[in-house]
Design a protein around this nucleic acid. Structure first.
Lengths: 218, 218
DNA sequence: ACCTGAACACCGTTCAAGT
DNA sequence: ACCTGAACACCGTTCAAGT
C-alpha cells in the first residue's frame, strides 16, 4: 500500500482487511497493519483505540459487504440474495466467518442487518416464532456451510476434489462410506460440493414456506 | 493442576483444554499450559511438536467428546443424538467450534466421524446425493447455530435476555422489527432461544425424511 | 495533531546445559 | 530421557519525545 495521504480510520481498517486476506487473522498485528500503510504500528492508536477495537471494526467491515435487499423485497428472494451474498463474502474473506458472530458485543451493523431480515418476514405475514425459526435456521446454515466450505479440501483449485478422493480412497477399509460416497458422486459426472449450498438453502426455505402457508390457512 | 506424575501427551492436551475453557483460545500459550502442569512451557515440546500440533490435538479432543451412536442406529435418531451432543460440546467448550473445521488438515477423528454418519444414511437407503445433502445441511446448521448461540447475549445467565431486550427496546425507531419480535416472544411467556435448536433441527430432518420417502416411492 | 522510538511484559521456538 | 534457562525474534501497549 502507499503512504500517500494522511491516515484515517477507514484506511486503517481497509489495510487490516488486506493483511487478513493475505496472511490470515493471525497475521494481523498492529505492526503489520502499520507496515501495510508505510507507518509504525504505534501510529494506529490515533485512529483505533486498541487491537480489539480494530477487530470489531473489521467485523463491521465484513457485514457491510453483505448484500441486503430493500425492506420491501419479497421475503424468499431477499433471504436467498442475502444468504448467497453472505456466503460469497465469507469465502472471499475466510477470517470473517468466525469473527462476525464471535465479537463480544453485537455491532450496530449486525443489529441493523437482523432488523432488516425480520422486516421482510413480518411484511410477509410471519408470526414472531416462525420468523425467529426462519431467521435462526437460515443464518445457522449459512454460517456453518461457509465454515465447512472454506476449510474443506474442496474447491480452491479444480484438482482438489480428486486429491481428497485420493487421500481417502486408498484406505476404503478405514472409511468405507466416505469412499463409497466419493466414488458415486464423482463418477456421476457433474457433481460439485458447492452446489450443496443451494440445495440446502432450498430445502430449508421450502420447509419454511410450507409452515408459512399452514399458518395462513389456519 | 498438580505436578504429580510424569508429563504425557494426554495430560498436556487436557491441560490445554482446561486453559482454553478458563481463558479462551487466546489464553492458550505454551507457557500457560506449562504453568497449568507445574512445568516450564519449554517442557511441552517433548510431547507435542509445536503449538499448532497442540491445537490440532485439541480439535481432536473436542470431536472425540461428541456422542456418536453405533453404526446400526436408525438414521434419524442417530442424527439427532449426534447433533444435540455436538451442540452441547460446543457450548461447554466455545473455543472448539471454529477450531474443529478450521484446522488445515481434516483429522482422522473427523473423517471417522463423517464416515459413521454416512453409514447411517446409506443403511437407511439414502442415495449418495441425498446423503450428502442431509449431512452437509444438518452439519452446517449445528455449527452455525452453536456459533451464534455461544456469542449472542442470550442464555449464559437467566437475566441476559431481558438485558438484551433493554439494550434494543429503548430505540425501537432504530430496530423496530427486532423490538417487535422481542416483545412478542417475551410476552408470550415460555419462549427461550435455545429451543430454536430443536425447532430448526426438526424442520431440516422432516424435509430430508420427505425427500427420502419420495425416492423410495419413485 | 499526528507520528515515532524506546521500553515493558508478553509470545513461539531453538538450543546448549543440566539431571 | 526429560526438564530448564537463556536467548532470539516477535507481540500489544504506554509514554515521553519529536514535528
Amino acid at each position: 500500500m502507499s503512504r500517500r495521504g494522511t491516515l484515517t480510520r477507514e484506511r486503517v481498517i481497509a489495510a487490516a482487511a488486506a493483511v487478513a486476506d493475505r496472511s490470515g487473522l493471525a497475521g494481523v498485528s498492529m505492526r503489520s497493519v502499520g507496515g501495510e500503510l508505510g507507518v509504525e504500528g504505534m501510529s494506529l492508536y490515533h485512529h483505533v483505540s486498541s487491537k480489539d477495537a480494530l477487530l470489531d471494526a473489521l467485523a463491521e467491515w465484513a457485514i457491510a459487504k453483505i448484500d441486503l435487499p430493500p425492506p420491501d423485497a419479497p421475503w424468499r428472494e431477499a433471504m436467498e440474495t442475502r444468504a448467497r451474498s453472505a456466503r460469497a463474502v465469507f469465502v472471499a474473506h475466510p477470517w470473517s466467518i468466525a469473527m462476525i458472530e464471535s465479537r463480544p458485543a453485537p455491532s450496530a451493523a449486525l443489529l441493523t442487518h437482523h432488523d432488516r431480515v425480520l422486516g421482510w418476514l413480518f411484511a410477509a405475514g410471519f408470526t414472531a416464532p416462525l420468523a425467529t425459526l426462519a431467521f435462526s435456521t437460515v443464518d445457522a446454515f449459512v454460517y456453518g456451510f461457509a465454515l465447512s466450505e472454506t476449510n474443506l479440501p474442496f474447491q480452491p483449485n479444480p484438482g482438489a476434489e480428486a486429491d481428497f478422493a485420493a487421500t481417502v480412497s486408498p484406505d476404503p477399509g478405514a472409511y468405507p462410506n466416505l469412499s463409497r460416497s466419493l466414488t458415486e458422486l464423482l463418477s456421476s459426472g457433474d457433481y460439485t460440493y458447492p452446489s450443496e449450498f443451494d440445495n440446502g438453502l432450498t430445502l430449508i426455505l421450502d420447509a419454511i414456506q410450507a409452515q408459512l402457508d399452514a399458518t395462513r390457512v389456519a
